[in-house]
Design a protein around this nucleic acid. Structure first.
Lengths: 192, 192
DNA sequence: CAACTGACAGACTTGCAATTCTGTCAGTCG
DNA sequence: CGACTGACAGAATTGCAAGTCTGTCAGTTG
């Protein structure tokens, strides 16, 4: 209340309110109220409600990409690292559906609206895959494929198992078997 | 008007009205009116509006699976046949989004609500892929993989390019390149 | 008597008045 | 003078009254 109003404090409050009321019900006035300021003050730090929402989504997505970055740049053998990267991605995504299915289903809409932020996130993830594949080629574990194109293709090929658009299918009992089949197929194409 | 009222005539009329007013706006009374009967008569042939809608969608999906069946059982070389099958699948799906986005969007709703119709359709398609892959193994063009599991994996791996949940992404300019990358990756794993 | 109608109850949808929200900006405060 | 407020216009959303639809069934028709 009596501290300086910063971008960070607003983001923190916004996330708290998003979580409580859901992103669509949340108003700028709600966020301002939690901070004990008028909503006009929020507009000194964010150009629009959309800018604020995008910033919150960005932070939220970062919580997925950061642990994956650690895996991508670890010293683990590329084949093992690749498998761990994917299983962690699926684990993180599924935890999100389970822990808050309501927020997850709303997040699908939010993602569709915040295309740019999500595109950047996907780019980050594909970049991480590219590093693993590049390392695998260098070590001779993978065939000399184009790392960027292959990273993109692997990400797209596994979309059914990590894209929020398919979230409803993840509770089926045979999803794990389905992913294993796809993973076996796509890695069959790159292992030396 | 003066002919006997059959399931087929109702389906025909229903499809016509669906196409004209959009499936959400269409009422059972609209369908009955086009046939010159009361809506009560429609209920002699279909248990509910949902049953009628499902039957219409079933016929619609058949228009995708029938031409694909012809390709799957053609005498073409398996590798070429596989490629043709997929490019036809994508072409048909994209035509549907373009020519009738309203009807297309309802099929998305049906995915969540009445899974049975769609599940049967997907089973049919995977079965067709299985035939092509089986033929390819017999001819020595493909490695001796499990045809059913591989068919399922190929279908899942290409979901982003044919699953209605991703329909909005198909208008992007780089989708074709994206599909080519994924196709190259998954076939790299099976060609002998 | 089989094929059909149309009135009906309750579920669902629509339109729109009332309310609430966003984004601005002239004005206050320390 | 820079951080902040709050009244305001127009956009967006909500709630709910009025209207429409689904599914049924007793009654009509050829």
């Amino acid at each position: 209340m009596n501290e300086v109003l910063t971008r960070e404090r607003i983001l923190e409050a916004a996330e708290q309110v998003f979580r409580r009321f859901g992103p669509h019900k949340t108003t700028v006035v709600d966020v301002a109220r939690l901070l004990g300021v008028s909503h006009g003050s929020v507009y000194r730090h964010f150009d629009s409600k959309i800018a604020l929402r995008d910033a919150v989504v960005e932070g939220w997505l970062k919580r997925t990409s950061d642990p994956l970055a650690a895996i991508a740049t670890s010293g683990e053998a590329p084949a093992k690292r690749l498998r761990l990267w994917f299983s962690t991605l699926l684990k993180l995504k599924r935890e999100k559906v389970k822990s808050d299915p309501e927020l997850f289903s709303v997040s699908r809409t939010i993602f569709a609206e915040a295309r740019e932020v999500v595109a950047r996130h996907v780019d980050t993830l594909v970049g991480q895959l590219e590093i693993i594949i590049g390392d695998g080629i260098a070590s001779g574990d993978f065939r000399p494929v184009d790392p960027r194109a292959t990273a993109q293709a692997m990400f797209d090929a596994t979309a059914r198992f990590h894209d929020p658009a398919h979230g409803a299918e993840w509770s089926a009992p045979d999803v794990d078997a389905g992913f294993d089949r796809v993973y076996a197929l796509v890695t069959a194409g790159i292992v030396a």
